[in-house]
Design a protein around this nucleic acid. Structure first.
Length: 816
RNA sequence: GCCCGGGUGGCGGAAUUGGUAGACGCAGCGGACUUAAAAUCCGCUGUCCGAAAGGACGUGCCGGUUCGAGUCCGGCCCCGGGCACCA
């Protein structure tokens, strides 16, 4: 009887070795080729979920693989510790958010240790600690000095019952999640970071980032949304101020038949003064949440204001409407509408009986009926007076020139990207380091007074920030004039913390500067792994912040993440696994039952990393069975005693075949992990090789030597995925040095050579036979052999061969 | 609504550059071992026709390009992610 596989013993033993040897603590060694491998750090929600296990395992596999290639690997871990769930828990259980958070961190840290990840814990970063957030407060004050931050009014979701600001997530079907009250849009002053100042750079650099997936780069390009258009103004009858609008389709200008303004627009308010119906409509428009998805999908509604604008080219009167889909905070709060050539305008015009005018005709001369079908393509101008017959580009320039000449408009570049609103009316976050003084206005907290420490001993009620009720926090002297002043009680968006933590891992203990020379050594991150749900916001904010730090002289690096792997979600019942939806599976139970290696292996094997993984409990058992087979295969082999050195010249065909399989597999798994990030096929290839070893029944000296080589290769190549069992089996195979310090195996190209190869024979593209041909056979010989095949002959019978296509090494296709 | 993905056996998935569709695993069925069960081992397993050899069909739907399409092109359907205050 051989020793049974006991994961809990094997795993403890391996982890003890790594801990005693401090295997994963790294310093800065300029002589070594560094590799910074990073995972998006977790929010400490309580327990690890399957999504965490998936992303951490992917990253750990990459880190361990790179280490085996000889790289000097840093893989740190930390906690994105500020956020709403801590406040929600506080309201529910009466526990201060800080206490709840620290408790969760301790719990999750234990779970991570149990999974055997190769983390350098000496660099742990926790964002709710003052020694971390003081530096983002400091950078904010620097940005303030440079004019990179500013304050302006901005829309929030207001719960009129709980008297508090709600996150979009807390608005359910237009109602507050706790009060069930209809949510209102409300404008309050908030701090913004000028992300648009970097819009061009953020966009252009995407073209020089080969290590990022195309899909993510496309999403970011579309999000930034650079467009070239014309800004022009319409006079409004009876008003001094003209109405300014932006359009990318000035060629359709002659088709403008109405204009629309936001409900909060001053012109709407003015018109509503003596029009109760209009006032009621405007009030209704405000009773909706501020999410773009809500606004874009809700029924498009509008009402005429009874005021007209003057068309700048024709002088015709154009009616002004107020519409629920125009937002005051984006652009100028007004749009021109061309129902003939814009989908949304067309639907709105049909519904409200506004004139639809055709001013663009299809370039191919075909006829269209604009009353029946909107036409949005670019074409040739019609019904446009002096511009008739022009194509899009000619008309764009002619009309833009006209406006620039008359001073009533200009060519402009516009971005869909907006500046980043970083104020949150919440307690559990980084205090915004600003003091308001009646005389000096908003004054940044001086460097020597940083950090502004968030008080941790509080009671959270769910109706506004507890900071407002803490005079010892709020009441301060103005840093400029010394008069009584008030501290800002809003905190930062938690995305601010996660926009620079990757750099701080390099120097988490530095209390005199944000980043030091150690950051210069480790950054940029070589491999960043995280959920596809972060494709835009987190990754774009980080790219922005990196540039702000660069321009502050803290780093030379512009792009924070050289290579990006976006892993798919772990789904359950077709939806993202999340605590909110209550569809989570607890990884801990599986670890207790099967061990960390089984869970790690299953996560890697069940789906390719970039695709979503629909969770099913079946299959984990299969991974466990495989590890048991693996265990016994190695133990049984080792029980045969020491093996002789491999004598390549003395091998028989079966031995050569196993050796070929071994080296084919080494080549494949290296490519799968190193180039393709295709971990599921890497595991499958390792399984195939082990299956070949188990079928291989040869106790001769040469046979055992070939088997030994194959098993060593499997142990080494599976070690990034299942490091514990491989650590133990490496010793079983007779090594007295630890696997963790061993190199990735090399493959022997000469082992791959074959004398005969099998080709597939097709007739008219359909598989009809197979022929074995010498590896060096010429095209003519291959053709003859293919045509001679019995089954192929049946399909060639009596037909004329028109063409024969030979794809070397693959197939022959005979066309008849 | 807009942007980005995905859809292949009973299930998870493989097919890397347009070249053998279904690797590897799960589940299922049959067998060995066992007093029995579990565990383990061996074999079969896309659907249909056929005793077999073999054949027909088959990668969400409709159409196209090609000697050859899961892969490329056009048009749809369904599912997932994001949409700026969830992280």
């Amino acid at each position: 009887m051989s020793t049974p596989y006991k994961p809990e013993i094997v795993e403890q033993e391996a982890q003890r070795h790594w801990q005693e040897a401090r295997s994963f603590e790294v310093d800065e060694d300029p002589g070594k080729d560094k590799f910074y491998c990073l995972t998006m750090f977790p929010y400490p929600s309580g327990k690890l979920h399957m999504g965490h296990v998936r992303v951490f395992t992917i990253s750990d596999v990459i880190a361990r693989y790179q280490r085996m290639l000889g790289k000097h690997v840093l893989q740190p871990m930390g906690w994105d510790a500020f956020g709403m769930p801590a406040e929600n828990a506080a309201i529910k259980h009466g526990v201060p958010p800080a206490e709840w958070t620290y408790r969760n961190i301790a719990e999750m840290r234990g779970q991570l240790d149990r999974l055997g990840y190769a983390y350098d814990w000496s660099r742990e970063v926790t964002t709710c600690r003052p020694e971390y957030y003081r530096w983002e407060q400091w950078l904010f004050t620097k940005m303030f000095e440079k004019g990179l931050v500013y304050r302006k009014n901005s829309v929030v979701n207001w719960d009129p019952v709980d008297q508090t600001v709600l996150a979009n997530e807390q608005v359910i079907d237009g109602r507050g999640w706790r009060s069930d009250a209809l949510v209102e849009r409300r404008e309050i002053p908030q701090w913004f970071m000028k992300t648009t100042a970097y819009a061009d750079e953020l966009l252009e650099e995407l073209d020089r980032m080969p290590g990022w997936p195309e899909s993510v780069k496309t999403m970011q390009r579309n999000w930034i949304g650079r467009s070239e258009g014309v800004e022009l103004s319409f006079d409004v009858k009876g008003e001094d101020e003209p109405l300014t609008v932006y359009t990318t389709r000035p060629d359709t200008l002659m088709g403008v038949t109405y204009m629309a303004v936001a409900a909060e627009h001053p012109l709407a308010a003015k018109a509503a003064k003596d029009n109760p119906d209009l006032a009621a409509f405007i009030a209704e428009c405000v009773r909706t949440d501020a999410a773009e998805a809500t606004i874009e999908t809700m029924e498009k509604k509008g009402m005429p204001l009874g005021i007209s604008a003057i068309h700048p080219l024709t002088g015709d009167e154009v009616p002004l409407w107020v519409a629920n889909f125009v937002l005051m905070s984006y652009g100028t709060g007004a749009v021109m509408a061309v129902p003939g050539h814009d989908e949304r305008d067309w639907e709105f015009a049909r519904k409200h009986g506004v004139t639809i005018k055709q001013v663009i005709a299809p370039a191919d001369g075909s006829q269209i009926d604009i009353q029946e079908q909107v036409f949005v393509d670019k074409g040739v101008l019609v019904n446009s007076g002096e511009f008739d017959g022009m194509d899009y580009a000619t008309a764009f320039n002619a009309i833009a020139d006209h406006f620039e000449r008359t001073g009533r408009g200009r060519r402009t570049v516009n971005y869909r990207l907006r500046d980043w609103g970083v104020s949150r009316q919440r307690y559990w976050g980084t205090p915004i380091p600003i003091i308001y003084c009646d005389d000096c206005d908003a004054v940044p907290v001086p460097e020597e007074d940083l950090p502004v420490v968030l008080p941790e001993d509080v009671t959270v009620t769910g109706t506004g920030s507890p900071l407002k009720d803490m005079p010892e926090f709020v009441n301060v002297a103005c840093p400029k004039c010394g008069k009584d002043a008030r501290r800002e009680t809003d905190t930062f968006d938690t995305f601010v913390e996660s926009s620079w933590y990757f750099a701080r891992y390099a120097c988490p203990d530095n209390d005199t500067t944000m980043l030091d020379e150690r950051a210069a050594y480790w950054t940029p991150v070589d491999q960043y792994t995280g959920g596809i749900e972060h494709a835009i916001l987190h990754l774009l904010y980080s790219r922005f912040f990196q540039r702000v730090m660069r321009d502050e002289g803290l780093t030379d690096v512009s792009e924070p993440f050289t290579n990006l792997l976006t892993q798919g979600m772990v789904l359950k019942d077709g939806a993202k696994m999340s605590k909110n939806k209550g569809n989570t599976v607890d990884p801990q139970e599986l670890i207790n039952k099967y061990g960390a290696d089984t869970v790690r292996l299953f996560m890697m094997f069940a789906a390719p990393p970039e695709q979503s993984l629909e969770w099913s409990d079946d299959g984990v058992q299969g991974s466990y069975r495989f590890l048991k087979r693996f265990w016994h295969a190695v133990i049984d082999h080792a029980a045969g005693g020491p093996v002789a050195a491999l004598d390549l010249k003395a091998l028989n065909d079966a031995q050569k075949a196993l050796r070929r399989k071994t080296h084919q597999t080494i080549a494949k798994i290296g490519d799968d992990i190193g180039r393709r990030s295709s971990f599921n096929t890497a595991v499958a290839a390792a399984m195939e090789l082990l299956n070949a070893v188990n079928r291989f029944d040869d106790d001769s000296e040469a046979g055992r030597a070939v088997e030994h080589e194959a098993l060593e290769a499997v142990v080494l190549m599976l070690s990034p995925m299942t490091p514990h069992i491989c650590h133990a089996l490496w010793q079983t195979l007779g090594h007295d040095t630890a696997l963790i310090d061993h190199r990735w195996p090399d493959f022997d190209a000469s082992a791959l050579e074959l004398d005969m190869i099998e080709l597939v024979v097709q007739v008219n593209g359909k598989l009809r036979g197979r022929v074995a041909v010498p590896a060096d056979a010429g095209k003519d010989d291959i053709e003859k052999l293919a045509i001679a095949d019995d089954n192929v002959q049946r399909f060639l019978d009596g037909k004329e061969i028109r063409k024969v296509i030979v794809v070397p090494g693959r197939l022959v296709n005979i066309v008849v």
